[in-house]
């Protein structure tokens, strides 16, 4: 089965990203496909590589990046939501005249159409948020 996941909250303040990660991992372990994980609202904050949580805590960004690498996951950060919250890739940083980018490995920035497409192309859309 093909799942799509929408994450509406950033890491740490809410459990949404943790739950979504555990769900995605379990789905992959069961042989399901994750068509896309779409990060929206404050969920875009999962996609910055500049987070440095304490060593005895989980590093959600890293967990997502690693899952993306091992399973070729498509992690999409909404561009409109990302621009509001300062999540930039190299292209966007250049386009907006900012002095650096912060997107984490395995994440890409794209439009809201990617969320709708995920709804169309997947068998189940599962939303995690607050």
């Amino acid at each position: 089965m093909r799942f799509a996941i929408q994450i509406n909250e950033g890491p740490y303040t809410h459990q949404a990203s943790d739950t979504a990660y555990r769900f995605a991992k379990a789905a992959l372990e069961k042989g399901h496909e994750i068509f896309r994980v779409f990060f929206y609202h404050d969920g875009v904050n999962n996609g910055t590589r500049y987070t440095v949580p304490p060593q005895d805590d989980r590093n959600l960004q890293k967990l997502w990046s690693e899952l993306a690498e091992s399973h070729k996951l498509d992690l999409v950060v909404c561009i409109a939501a990302a621009q509001r919250r300062g999540i930039l890739d190299a292209n966007e940083a250049k386009r907006q005249g900012k002095d650096g980018d912060n997107i984490a490995p395995g994440f890409r920035i794209s439009g809201l159409g990617q969320l709708i497409e995920a709804g169309i192309e997947s068998d189940r859309m599962v939303v995690f948020g607050d």
């Binding site: 509406n8 609202h41 939501a81 809201l112 159409g113 709708i116 709804g119």
Partner: peptide
Amino acid sequence: TIYALESLEVVLIGAAFEQ
């Protein structure tokens, strides 16, 4: 909270997909 506004933004973009 921002949910109403950003939900509306999805609706507007989603409209182009003719669902």
